[in-house]
């Protein structure tokens, strides 16, 4: 997809939003959920997903939980209290950004 670069800046917000709707998720699940929700339009690569998850974790927005599934260890990510507040902030910022872009690119709609 040619517009993958446009989504890149919003990857962290996408992850936070998904985690706010699902109690906890693991890396592969996030990639599959995004693929399904966007009907394959957005594919999050492993090389982009994990650095984003680790950054959010280092910032204290995500917490991790380990569980044993199918005889192997699975690492789940969930929002911290701080992460929940930050999700609301970032979604508001993204909403504002989308509206500004609409004003710029399609002024007739307003």
């Amino acid at each position: 997809m040619g517009n993958q670069k446009l989504y890149k800046g919003s990857l962290q917000t996408i992850i936070l939003k998904l985690l706010s709707e699902n109690d906890k998720m693991y890396g592969y699940e996030i990639t599959q959920k995004v693929k399904a929700l966007t009907k394959g339009e957005l594919k999050i690569t492993e090389g982009a997903l994990y650095p984003a998850l680790h950054k959010l974790e280092a910032e204290g927005l995500l917490d991790v939980e380990v569980a044993k599934v199918d005889n192997r260890l699975r690492k789940y990510y969930k929002l911290t209290e701080c992460g929940t507040k930050e999700t609301a902030n970032r979604l508001a910022q993204l909403d504002e950004f989308i509206q500004t872009m609409q004003h710029l690119l399609n002024p007739k709609l307003t």
Binding site: Y26, G27, Y28, E46, Y50, V66, V69, R72, L73, R74
Partner: peptide
């Protein structure tokens, strides 16, 4: 390691 191993196996 464990999270990457799990991701690869799921894939």
């Amino acid at each position: 390691r464990h999270e990457i191993l799990d991701h690869m196996l799921l894939d």
